[in-house]
Amino acid sequence: MADEKTAPLLTPVPDDDGAPFWDYAARGELRIQACAAPGCGELRFPPRPCCPHCQSFDSTWRRMSGKGRIWSYVVPHPPLLPAYAALAPYNAIIVELAEAPRIRLVGNLVTSADAPLDSADPARIRIGARVQAVFTETGGVTVPRWVLERP
């Protein structure tokens, strides 16, 4: 397994709308922006200033369980970015949240929070597999990653 601490990994660049997502992630919490207008409450991701359902600018951040299922995935061969070549085979997964199936997050399936990107055997990745969010710091930002609920 490659040492991802030496690889120039992509890190998120928080903006004003998404900054709370990263602040909560740093605390080990998966929260999703929700409309705070009376009678609406729609969840939205990525975060944005206005609710696409009712056009309200009022929002709050709802704590999620961190549970979901793999909606889709890819294992790049060869890696799409040369800087990741030493980490191959790694994966990128799309996770559909359990309590909000229309909300999907992109991340990596790993064997534990601090495991390298190439720690999960690509042969074990299945669409529909249940996963749980874990958090790790990389490049100065805490990011959610995913582990199988039943490895």
Rank of each mutant, 00 (worst) to 15 (best):
M1T: 05
M1V: 03
M1Q: 07
A2Q: 10
K5A: 09
T6I: 07
P8R: 04
P8K: 04
P8Q: 05
L9S: 04
L10R: 09
T11H: 05
P14V: 04
D15Q: 06
D16Y: 03
G18A: 12
P20C: 03
D23T: 11
Y24K: 05
Y24R: 08
A26H: 03
R27N: 13
G28Q: 05
E29C: 02
L30P: 12
I32M: 05
C35Y: 08
A37P: 08
P38A: 10
P38V: 04
G39F: 07
E42A: 02
L43M: 13
L43H: 13
F45T: 05
C51A: 10
P52F: 09
P52L: 04
H53T: 09
C54R: 13
C54H: 10
S56L: 05
S56P: 09
S56H: 11
D58S: 14
S59T: 08
S59V: 00
R63G: 07
R63T: 04
G66R: 02
K67Y: 13
G68L: 04
I70S: 13
I70Y: 12
W71N: 10
W71G: 03
S72K: 05
L80M: 09
P82T: 03
Y84E: 06
Y84Q: 00
P89M: 04
P89T: 02
P89V: 00
P89H: 09
I94F: 07
I94Y: 12
I94D: 06
V95N: 15
E96S: 13
I103R: 04
I103T: 10
R104M: 07
V106D: 00
G107F: 06
L109T: 08
L109C: 07
T111D: 14
A113G: 10
P116Q: 06
L117K: 01
D118Q: 00
A120K: 06
A120C: 12
D121G: 08
A123T: 09
A129V: 01
R130S: 09
F135W: 11
T136M: 05
E137H: 07
T138S: 13
G139W: 08
G140E: 11
G140H: 11
W146S: 03
W146A: 01
W146Q: 04
V147F: 14
V147H: 13
V147M: 11
E149G: 12
P151W: 00
P151C: 11
P151V: 02
